[in-house]
Amino acid sequence: MDGLTKCGLSADELADFRRIAGFMIPADATYDVPGADDPLIFADIASSLGVDREDVRAALTSLRQFAGCPLSDMDDGRAERVSFEFLAQQGRPIQTLGRMVLAAYYRDDRVMRSIGREPRAPYPKGHTVPDGDWSLLEVVKARAPIWRDDRKA
């Protein structure tokens, strides 16, 4: 959880952030996936803020203003409704907050397995791509040239 302490957000900001992240991407047993508020995933989100930290902070400040109180003071239903109304406002800070959540969520091992991918970096194993159906090109090969020959113009 080192990311949480070093990420540069206050404890209050982190609490709101984690709560809204859990509404944005909730855990789902059907797909066997954690939510974005899962401790490992949220720690990854928090430790990845980097150059985007100020945008995320700005989003969290407007969230607090919009909600009028910390999300933790609200019951689940109200906190969820307020969160979605807030997210619907769009704007750069909110988009950045969304990107930070998604970028970390869609690299978690459990999430990767759930969508049928090996949890790994692309390099060095790479991927296999089927060759495809080259016979489809036969009709194109049979065509006359369609490029314009300036020497004949």
Partner: peptide, 24 residues
Amino acid sequence: PASEAIQSSLVGHLPWGRDHHRVY
């Protein structure tokens, strides 16, 4: 996987909330 989520969310094709996983 992450780029798909980010780009689709940006243009409103990928919702937040309970339907997120199915749509994704």
